[in-house]
């Protein structure tokens, strides 16, 4: 076997890299080389995907600070699966341990920062979050487990990031955070962390939530991009299988913002949704656009009953 003979395969590997934004590459090692070098490993794991032991979610219990998380529960009516499963069950022992120890979890640095932001006065009204909401441990307990919510004023669903921005603009006289601003991820994580362990559920009876759910469902099953993949192609039809060296989970959102080892930082839900869509080589919808909000409504429902794990740790 000569090296030149392998070149066409390398070419394919390289094409796969060209669509990845440079921001994704946290460490300056030649990632394209990395990809080529590990191509055989990647192919190998595709070969392994037939071995069920490699693919099944683990049988393990997640306890964070003495609180047992619901990582596996009966799916709501009309759900394609019988059971909904947290992404935690699909990760390695080491990654699972990182989330289970709230001190070791590096995302807690972001939660700490969010706690400081909560107390910081900003904007023309001279208020902080705490000025109105007091102690977040009380006022925000359980709140984050029930977003997105219907917003009668804008006649759209709002998620936690948008709710924070509304509050900043309307009540604090402060500027809305730009998408994925460090502070946005920190404060969102801090507020959702107050619901740690609470079962996630959203109210579809409010406003037009049902119509947004329908739209989200339609998008979930719509194939897109050069790879012609729908959300459901990976996270439903291939759930539990390997995609190259990665384990396909149900794509649950109960841990967002989540610490991804790859990015070495907190990653927001819309960042991840966009990343997933980019990986199908499709045009990415904007963060908080109608499309992504509809998908958020629908995929949040798909995780009904799972404990909030924000900030989770994933690969």
């Amino acid at each position: 076997m000569t090296k030149s003979r392998v070149n066409p395969v390398r070419g394919v590997g390289h094409m796969g890299r060209t669509i990845v934004s440079k921001n994704e590459i946290k460490w300056g090692l030649s990632v394209s080389l990395f990809g080529v070098g590990l191509l055989s490993v990647g192919l190998l794991s595709v070969g392994l995907s037939i071995a069920p032991a490699q693919a099944d979610p683990v049988d393990d219990t997640l306890v964070i600070d003495g609180k047992e998380m619901i990582t596996r529960t009966a799916a709501p009516e009309g759900h394609p699966f019988k059971e909904v499963l947290s992404g935690w069950l699909f990760r390695t022992e080491e990654t699972r341990a990182l989330e289970a120890d709230s001190f070791q979890n590096p995302a807690m640095l972001g939660v700490d920062e969010g706690a400081e932001i909560w107390e910081t006065v900003e904007g023309t009204a001279g208020k902080s979050c705490a000025s109105c909401h007091g102690d977040a441990a009380e006022s925000m307990a359980g709140i984050g487990a029930h977003y997105p919510k219907w917003d009668p004023e804008t006649k759209r669903p709002v998620n936690m990031e948008l709710k924070i921005n509304q509050c900043r603009e309307k009540n604090m006289g402060a500027e809305a955070y730009k998408f994925d601003a460090r502070e946005q991820k920190a404060l969102t994580s801090f507020i959702k962390y107050q619901s740690l362990g609470d079962p996630m559920s959203i109210d579809l009876s409010q406003g037009d939530m049902r119509a947004w759910w329908d739209k989200g469902k339609e998008l979930y099953y719509t194939r897109t991009g050069q790879l012609n993949l729908a959300c459901g192609s990976c996270h439903e039809a291939s759930m539990g299988k390997m995609i190259r060296a990665d384990h396909l989970s149900q794509g649950q959102v109960n841990g967002f913002p989540t610490y991804r080892l790859k990015q070495q930082g907190l990653v927001s839900l819309h960042n991840r949704l966009r990343g997933c869509i980019r990986d199908t080589r499709a045009e990415m919808p904007k963060a908080f656009s109608d499309d992504l909000m509809a998908i958020e409504v629908y995929v949040t429902w798909r995780g009904t009953g799972l404990s909030m794990e924000t900030p989770a740790v994933r690969h």
Binding site: G16, R17, V20, E24, V31, F34, G35, L38, V41, G42, S45, L227, C234, I243, R244, A245, D246, L248, K262, G275, R278, D279, T280, H315
Partner: peptide
């Protein structure tokens, strides 16, 4: 230590 490359995004 075997270092794996991730899913479709690498």
């Amino acid at each position: 230590v075997k270092v794996t490359i991730g899913g479709c995004g690498g």
